[in-house]
Simulated assay, not measured.
Amino acid sequence: MNTIVSASILGADICHLGEALDKLRTWQIDMVHFDVMDGVFVPNISFGIPMLSAVRRHTKLFLDVHLMITDPLRYVSAFAKAGADRITFHLESSSDPRATLEAIRQTGRQAGIAIKPGT
């Protein structure tokens, strides 16, 4: 069984994000996990499309984007264009799951569905 190591940038020091991304490559990290929170679907607010675009310009590592947002379907294309390699959204979001999966597939990105523990 292969082990895949994914590092979340949620806890990174944003002032030194480029340096942190460079270290991930030397540490043989397989992918960067990018949590997107809108302050509505979940109470926290995190990164958005401009940050993802900046990260993509800095690294060739696989970018695993986890959308914890109310209406992921609305943003699929923008996150794909910004550099996501995989886009995961929550089943509990307001977007139609089939339509959201299809939209992700149409961008050529990998698709994933996350499910809250209560579900």
Rank of each mutant, 00 (worst) to 15 (best):
K81Y: 00
E19F: 07
I45G: 11
L21M: 15
L67R: 04
G39Q: 05
R56L: 06
S77P: 04
V36W: 00
L61M: 15
V42W: 03
D64S: 06
I29A: 11
G83L: 04
L63E: 06
K23F: 11
L24C: 13
V55T: 11
E92V: 13
D13K: 10
E19T: 14
D85E: 06
L24S: 01
F34A: 02
A20T: 15
L17P: 03
M51P: 00
C15F: 03
A84W: 00
L101Q: 07
M68N: 07
L63P: 12
V65A: 08
S53Y: 01
S53H: 00
G18M: 04
L73Q: 14
D30A: 07
S93C: 14
N44V: 10
I49L: 01
S53L: 00
G39A: 13
L91A: 08
I45H: 04
I104S: 11
F62V: 05
D85M: 07
F47Q: 01
P97C: 12
L91C: 10
R56Q: 01
S95H: 11
S46Y: 06
R25L: 08
V65R: 02
A82I: 00
G83M: 01
D35F: 05
I29P: 14
G48Y: 06
H33K: 08
A103W: 05
D38T: 06
K23C: 06
R25V: 15
D64N: 10
L101I: 09
F34T: 11
G18V: 12
I49V: 15
G83K: 00
G18K: 10
K23M: 09
T100D: 04
A99C: 10
M37N: 04
T59P: 14
L17V: 07
E92I: 02
R74G: 00
I45R: 04
T70C: 05
V36M: 06
L24Q: 05
I14F: 12
T70V: 12
R57A: 12
C15W: 08
E92A: 12
G18F: 10
G18D: 07
L101S: 09
A103H: 02
D38Q: 13
V40T: 10
G48H: 01
G48F: 02
L91K: 13
P97D: 09
L21H: 08
I14H: 12
D96W: 09
F62M: 09
K81W: 00
L52N: 03
A78M: 03
T26W: 00
F34K: 06
I14V: 15
A103M: 00
R98H: 14
I49W: 01
L63W: 01
P97R: 06
M37C: 02
H90G: 11
I45W: 01
T100W: 08
A20G: 03
L52S: 08
L52D: 02
Q106T: 05
D71H: 12
K60T: 15
V55G: 07
T26N: 02
N44A: 14
K81R: 07
L63G: 13
D22P: 00
F89S: 08
I49H: 06
I69V: 15
S53A: 12
V76F: 07
R105H: 15
S95I: 11
I14Q: 13
K23S: 03
W27I: 01
H33N: 14
R98T: 12
H90Y: 02
D64F: 03
R56S: 03
D85H: 13
C15M: 06
